[in-house]
């Protein structure tokens, strides 16, 4: 028997590999998250606005530079922590959450906020109570309300037809994710006019489905668990369903689930392990809480998309959820 063979009795690393389908190191997880985002990113660049690629590049570089700077300031090994990919993931998520035409310097400020204020002030990877990308999003939308709601729509055929610009002569519209558009029109028209867009723009739906696909792949690869996304979608769907029963002018359930940040958030934001709950039951509660809060902010708040704020509020509730969730010891 060779030494290689004997190693099987001592090497915990070999045991890890033997359970390979379920086990992977943290840096690998981060890479897989980025991989799962790729189809959505490609479709986004092709259908909506290619500037998103520029935004992604800037955000990732800025996030990595900020991370390196902080690690250097904190006198920690710089290279090993850049390799774990968490800063890059934060940059990617932020760049995908903001409008593609956001000025670069605003995006860089966002990355700085995410890495410095949201992550390293609390102790770096694994210690941040709030989702860094969502903190940055909140800071940006509060600070730059004009550029942060400047969504392009020229490439969105359904929206063009619906808004009376089939030739695509307009360059851009402000506040035009399907959700914003719905809100805007629901206020000025009555329920039965075709003009109110009973379905969100096709392009956005296609991209939302790409996020869904990437999320399902992550589920299948067991990078994420189903608890938080399913709880989020169910609670959000239920809330919107009840709302349409009560008031016919409320946002239809299809737009609520396929529009806005819903699917992107369900699979890539609420599944963030660090700032979310860590147990199955805790994740169900966390996801459901985000769903209800998102609905409340969308329906009664003044912001076009309440998802980021809902996530941040539930992040604050995670220690409580952790504390309440006692293990059922076998």
């Amino acid at each position: 028997m060779s030494e290689q063979h004997t190693r099987r009795a001592v090497d915990i690393g070999l045991l890890r590999q033997s359970t390979g389908a379920t086990w992977r190191a943290t840096p690998v997880i981060m890479r897989q998250v980025i991989l799962a985002l790729l189809p959505g990113i490609v479709l986004y660049a092709y259908l909506i606005d290619a500037r998103v690629l520029l935004g992604l590049t800037i955000a990732v570089i800025a996030a990595l530079l900020f991370e390196a700077m902080v690690m250097w300031l904190r006198k920690r090994p710089v290279t090993s922590r850049l390799g774990d990919g968490s800063a890059a993931v934060t940059g990617v998520l932020l760049a995908l959450s903001v409008p593609p035409g956001l000025p670069a310097w605003q995006l860089i400020i966002g990355c700085g906020v995410a890495i410095l204020l949201a992550k390293h002030v609390f102790g770096g990877l694994g210690h941040n109570p709030f989702n860094p990308a969502m903190v940055a999003f909140a800071v940006l939308i509060v600070s730059f309300p004009v550029t942060m709601t400047d969504w392009p729509m020229t490439a969105d055929p359904v929206a063009r037809v619906a808004l009376g610009d089939p030739a695509g002569t307009w360059d851009a519209m402000t506040s035009q994710t399907p959700l914003d558009r719905y809100r805007a029109h629901a206020r000025i028209t009555t329920g039965d006019t075709v003009f109110t867009l009973s379905s969100p723009g096709t392009a956005w739906v296609v991209i939302a489905l790409a996020w869904l696909g990437g999320g399902l792949w992550l589920l299948w690869m067991r990078v994420i668990t189903w608890h938080a996304p399913v709880a989020l979608l169910v609670s959000l769907g239920t809330c919107h369903g009840l709302a349409t029963l009560i008031s016919p002018t409320a946002m239809p359930i299809g737009i609520a689930l396929l529009g806005g940040a819903t699917l992107f958030g369900a699979f890539f934001i609420v599944t963030d392990p660090v700032s979310g709950a860590a147990t199955p039951r805790g994740r169900l509660l966390f996801g459901a809480g985000v769903g209800v809060l998102t609905f409340l902010i969308r329906q009664f708040g003044s912001w076009p998309e309440g998802f980021a704020f809902a996530v941040l509020i539930m992040n604050a509730a995670v220690p409580l959820i952790d504390r309440l969730d006692r293990p059922r010891v076998r």
Partner: peptide, 16 residues
């Protein structure tokens, strides 16, 4: 056997 060097410990990311 020759012990296998341990991987450097990374922070807990609460993955569950």
């Amino acid at each position: 056997a020759t012990p296998v060097p341990e991987e450097p410990v990374l922070p807990c990311i609460r993955c569950g």
